[in-house]
Amino acid sequence: TYPRTWDTVDRKNDAVVCVPHTPDPVLFGIRGESPAAVREARSYVRSEEPACEQVYTTNQGTDAHLLPGAIGELREGRSYLVRGAVAGLPATGPGGHVSFLLEDGGVEVRCMAYEPTRGFRDVVRALVPGDRVAVAGSYKGGSLNLEKLGVSHLAALVRIRPPVCPACARRMTSAGTAKGYKCRVCGGRSREPDVERWERRIRPGWYEVPPVARRHLSRPLVRGVPAWEEDLLQSGRP
């Protein structure tokens, strides 16, 4: 019944999401867009006989917990959507957790993508300094724990190297500050370096953690992005 229901199973990570993992009187819970959608999904589930069941309205999957925030003004224990520029290359730490610094107005905050977010960490690893992003997550212990990430602008990823000598096909070396390049083999010279542009592995847009790592209140992208979140993301364009 996806996308009329969501976060029932995580097929990519081979996990059932709608069943509690702790001793619990709840057998399962199905989240969906309408009573009809969740009733249809429920009809496909085989389980022990429940004592009771009910369809009710909830704020799960709505981003009701997110507040627009600014780096340097975040309060412990609250959840925010914050925009800024990536200030350093992401680093993978012990346990596979990935972090990077986000900067805005000369103030920085550390953003964390923890190991349970699985493939979402590859999106974070693909960021480079200068990328403009908006990040959503809870602020705890001085870090934003990421739930989703929006990219509004990708910085150019280039590598600058000495040029190859056209005469002997050897790579030149620097001839000194502001003096260009010189071939040590034949003495050939060049003023311009080789500029290699690398294709980025991500594109502008929104990225989210997998269902197995999503908080109940977090709005999955299949439900669309609220207008205020998209507006905040786009206002961060250079």
Rank of each mutant, 00 (worst) to 15 (best):
V107D: 04
G236K: 01
L27H: 05
R200W: 01
A167G: 02
V124W: 04
T5C: 10
P90N: 10
V9T: 13
S34M: 10
R161S: 10
W228N: 03
S235N: 13
R118I: 04
V86R: 11
Y181E: 07
V225N: 06
R31L: 09
V212K: 07
I30L: 14
L102M: 11
A37D: 06
A64Y: 03
R11T: 11
R200H: 01
D131M: 13
G187A: 08
C18F: 03
I160N: 02
G137M: 10
P238K: 12
C111G: 04
Y2M: 13
N13T: 01
G69K: 13
V16I: 15
G29H: 00
V9W: 05
R223G: 02
E229Y: 03
P226A: 00
G188C: 05
S34A: 08
L146N: 04
E103R: 15
R189Y: 04
L232S: 10
E196C: 06
E192C: 04
V82Q: 08
K179F: 00
A41S: 09
Q60E: 15
R200M: 01
G32L: 04
P3D: 07
D24F: 00
G142N: 07
P163A: 10
I71G: 01
P162I: 06
C186V: 06
R83E: 03
Y44C: 04
R191I: 00
R11Y: 04
R159Y: 07
A91I: 08
M172E: 08
I202G: 06
S47P: 05
A156G: 10
D24M: 06
E196A: 09
R215K: 10
D63M: 02
T92Q: 15
Y181M: 03
H21K: 14
P50N: 06
Y2V: 08
G188Y: 09
R118K: 13
F100C: 09
V185I: 14
V26Y: 00
